[in-house]
Amino acid sequence: KEFRPGDKVVLPPYGVGVVAGIAQRSVSGVSRAYYQVDFPGSRSKAYVPVEAPHSVGLRKAL
């Protein structure tokens, strides 16, 4: 896996977040693995496909 729990990442347009782990989510009846990204200071979460994280701009924070 490219990202691990605890990694600081950037996800446009949300900003800097932390990978909380990998979650299985069902979309249109198909279960897939997603990185769960939490954003400190907020209750917001984002789910990014493990198979294509760069397709939505997910990258490691510098």
Rank of each mutant, 00 (worst) to 15 (best):
A20F: 10
G29E: 03
G57W: 05
G21L: 08
P49M: 05
Q36R: 10
R25I: 14
P13V: 05
L62F: 12
I22C: 06
H54N: 10
Y35L: 05
D38S: 13
Q36K: 10
K1H: 15
K45Y: 11
P5Y: 06
R32E: 05
Y47H: 03
V27A: 05
V50L: 05
V10Q: 05
P5M: 10
A46W: 08
Q36D: 03
G17F: 03
S42A: 09
A23M: 14
R25M: 13
F39K: 00
P40K: 08
G17H: 12
A61P: 06
K1M: 15
V27L: 07
V16F: 13
S26C: 14
S55A: 09
D7I: 03
S31A: 09
K8N: 06
V27P: 04
S42F: 12
F3K: 01
G6A: 05
S31T: 13
A61L: 15
G57L: 05
A46F: 10
G29W: 02
G41Q: 11
V10T: 06
E2M: 12
L58A: 04
A46G: 04
P49K: 03
K8G: 03
L58P: 03
Y35K: 01
V19F: 04
V37H: 00
D38L: 14
V16Q: 11
V48G: 01
S28P: 02
R32Q: 11
V56W: 10
Q24A: 07
R25F: 14
S31R: 10
A46T: 06
H54I: 05
Y34W: 05
Y47S: 02
R43W: 10
L11D: 01
Q36N: 03
G6K: 02
V16T: 07
S44D: 11
F39W: 02
G15A: 02
G21W: 03
A52D: 15
V30G: 05
Y34M: 04
D7A: 04
R32C: 08
L58I: 10
G21F: 06
A46M: 11
A20N: 07
G15E: 00
F3A: 02
D38W: 15
R25N: 05
A46R: 11
A20G: 06
S31D: 07
K45A: 12
L11R: 00
S26H: 08
V37Y: 00
V16W: 11
G17L: 02
P49S: 08
D38P: 00
V48E: 00
G17V: 02
R25P: 02
K1Q: 14
R43N: 15
P53L: 06
K45W: 08
P40F: 12
P12M: 09
S42Q: 09
S44T: 14
S26M: 14
G21Y: 04
K8W: 15
P12T: 04
V9P: 04
V27T: 07
P12S: 06
V16I: 13
Y34I: 01
S26R: 14
P40Y: 12
P40D: 09
S31P: 08
G15V: 02
F39I: 03
Q24S: 08
Y14Q: 03
S42T: 13
L62P: 13
P12Q: 07
R32S: 08
E51P: 03
Q24T: 13
G21R: 12
F3Y: 07
V50Q: 02
Y14G: 01
G57F: 04
Q36T: 08
L62V: 14
V16R: 08
S42Y: 11
E51W: 12
G41R: 09
G6I: 02
Y47K: 00
P13L: 09
K1V: 15
G41H: 13
V10L: 07
P12F: 09
S28D: 15
A33R: 11
Y47F: 11
R4V: 09
F3V: 02
V37A: 00
E51I: 07
L62Y: 13
A20V: 14
S28N: 15
Q36E: 14
R32V: 10
G41E: 11
V37C: 04
A52F: 11
A33I: 08
V56L: 07
K1S: 13
S44M: 14
Y47E: 03
S28L: 13
V16N: 08
F3N: 01
L62C: 14
D7W: 08
E51Q: 06
Q36G: 01
K8Y: 13
V48T: 01
G57D: 04
L11H: 03
G57R: 04
S26L: 14
G17W: 03
S55G: 08
K60S: 11
Q24D: 07
S26E: 13
L62W: 11
S55C: 14
L11K: 01
G15W: 05
F3Q: 01
K60V: 09
V50H: 02
V30S: 07
F3D: 01
L58E: 08
V18G: 01
E51F: 06
V56Q: 07
V56M: 11
P12V: 06
G57S: 04
P49C: 09
A20Y: 09
R43H: 13
A33V: 10
S28W: 10
Y14T: 01
G17Q: 01
G17M: 02
G41T: 09
G15M: 03
V56I: 06
I22D: 01
P13W: 09
S44I: 15
V27D: 07
F39S: 01
A33S: 12
R25A: 06
S31H: 08
Y14H: 08
E2Y: 12
E2A: 13
Y47P: 00
S28T: 05
A23L: 15
R59T: 11
A20P: 00
S55Q: 10
R4W: 08
V50T: 04
L58K: 03
V30H: 13
Q24M: 14
G41Y: 11
S42L: 12
V18F: 11
H54C: 11
V9H: 01
S44P: 09
P5T: 11
E51Y: 06
S44E: 13
V18T: 08
P40N: 07
S31V: 14
P5K: 13
V56N: 10
F39Q: 01
R59K: 09
S28C: 15
F39R: 00
P12H: 10
S26K: 13
P5G: 03
G6W: 02
S55Y: 08
V48P: 02
V37F: 02
Y14C: 09
A52E: 09
G57T: 04
Y14I: 03
P13N: 09
D38Q: 12
A52Y: 09
P53F: 09
P40S: 07
V50A: 03
S42H: 09
S42P: 06
A23C: 15
V9C: 06
P49Y: 05
D38N: 12
I22E: 02
G17P: 00
R25T: 06
G15Q: 01
G6M: 04
S42W: 10
A46N: 03
